[in-house]
Design a protein around this nucleic acid. Structure first.
Lengths: 191, 191, 191, 191
DNA sequence: AATGAATGAGCGTTCATTCAT
DNA sequence: TATGAATGAACGCTCATTCAT
């Protein structure tokens, strides 16, 4: 009944992600996105009323996917297992923070946007609570140092994965070392 | 006799720094900068051929200053002292990474730019080498775990300073905890 | 058997009229019209090659209807009766002028359009002649001042109804006063 | 110290006036105006922050000029003289109403605009009061029919000047006839 | 050395119009 | 017949950049 679409939602969100990560919120333009998808700029407006809406929608799509996986952390009872699962997850969703940070730049003007913003905030809260729950468990089990602020622990775990692997160390070795630093620091024991 | 300049390089670089940190690369405009310096936009072109050039020039100025301080790390013979000095330094120049990150956004088109870009890369290298030197010392003294890649150690330390202090933990406590994580990790000893 | 049309010409022209009066020529869009008729924008193109054509077509439809009524003026032999009929008619079709005025904004590009434009001009001429006939009768009967140009008389009658009733004077009083001015002016007799 | 301007404010306001009258508020574009003045669109933004501002500024310029002249009506003590003066004035500023009407379409968003809007409203009020004063004098002198609403009298006079002189009747004759209709109507005395 | 004037490219957005189903 | 997909021109607006004084 109508022509076939030239790009799928997945195509679009994938392109959006890359552009957003490479250019930031201000640097992300419909022109760039359209070029990438090989459509006209105006075609994008069929699906998203405006730039903010597009980015918000993308944000939610991305967060939803991430949260689905993050929630699985509760499948593990043992803290140690949760820790391993979490690190793997963060590693494979390395850029989620940058995206969240970029998301903060999106201005919120009208009501529709406000709604979406709330939903997004809800997801953030969910994420935060998952992690705080995890830290709480770690402290209760006597695994995590009790005197270190929760937010710092969470922040460190999240931030770690943004360290660029400039020297191209093999993945498994890199992750292994990273885990070790996070757990026991970079100093030898006899300090 | 020529007229006197209405603004000094220091004025200019200081203003550039603040604007860059507050607005990001895309949000930084000659208009904003000119307003801040109380000159016309066009006046800026007398000193910097274009926006990228200005930012590059600023980057180098900033890096130079930072490197001067970083090189002082060699005044300390003891690794432990170097470590403390480094953390303090990074803490008080926290935004150097943001600036470097912003620097990555600058597009490189022509030859003049390429030249400056190379020089800037040189400074990065200097920085890296200072730090690698520091890591080498640590390893030689048996303080740092020998099997962890140097770049990860350096990267991890640098990245630490980007963890946002969302919960507004007091500065000294925050730094103290950071040091502890870096040295001994977030896990308790009996793991 | 072909599908049945989802909207009638009357629907369409009615919607067009309201939109045109409320939004003006530039503010009138196919999107608005389609939404009103609950069809897709593109469906409209089956019936009207383009926006101008649609508006022209509408104009003619509207004029036709108006002319049907205007021609009834000849049912009255007496000038006085014609005068009253005319005023009532104008009052209840007040917006015909606005529409004509809007019609003047329609650009005429191609040949098809030119044709329709001519036909529309013909209708205007008809209207004008009806009114000139009316004026002629008035002058012959010695009711209208003979030395005042016909076009001014006609123009005045048409234009009068566009005076906005800002102070919300009750309708009947307003019309009554209007008639009086048109007939005998706003000055008292002893001038 | 800087290049000479390619157009004066008068040029600009004149062009604005014509475009506004021919295309209406929506149809008036910076593109059109720039083309007319043989400058780039963006050049206009040096002088007017946005479209509304430009139009408002123009409105005030136009109104100011008009009000200067309208206020002179009080130089005449006699109603008859005021009447003549008024008609001449309106004739030479025929389109002031269309402009006012167009001015009503300008959306008012921010504070700067609100201010200007208020000033413009003030001018409208001035105009209205000048005319109501004039009508009052006419009624007091027994020249104007007392039972006809003031707003109708004012509106009728203003509207008169919008009657198009389609048949190209010579100016003086046209004005003469207009005066007569306004004063004594279009009907002969013996009605 | 510094300025205001002017330009052109590009952005976000809207809309008439065309195309393929 | 009717539709959703797609396009391209234009609009309002911003900004880096150039020009003439």
């Amino acid at each position: 009944m109508a022509r076939e679409r030239k790009f799928s939602d997945e195509d679009l969100f994938l392109a959006t992600k890359e552009l957003l990560l490479n250019h930031g919120y201000e640097g992300f333009t419909f022109g760039l996105l359209a070029e990438r998808l090989k459509v006209s700029r105006s075609a994008l407006y069929k699906y998203f009323g405006n730039k903010e809406e597009l980015i918000m929608e993308f944000m939610m799509y991305e967060m939803d996917q991430f949260m689905d996986k993050l929630r699985k952390i509760d499948d593990y009872d043992d803290f140690e297992d949760q820790f391993n699962y979490l690190l793997e997850l963060m590693m494979s969703h390395r850029n989620i923070h940058q995206l969240i940070e970029i998301g903060r730049h999106v201005p919120v003007n009208n009501k529709k946007m406000e709604e979406k913003n709330k939903k997004l905030d809800g997801l953030h809260l969910n994420m935060y609570q998952s992690l705080v729950g995890f830290v709480g468990l770690g402290k209760k089990e006597g695994k995590l140092k009790p005197h270190i602020p929760d937010t710092l622990i969470v922040g460190y775990i999240l931030q770690s994965f943004l360290v660029p692997n400039l020297a191209q160390i093999p993945h498994s070795e890199w992750v292994q070392s990273m885990k070790e630093i996070i757990r026991d620091g970079m100093f030898t024991d006899d300090n």
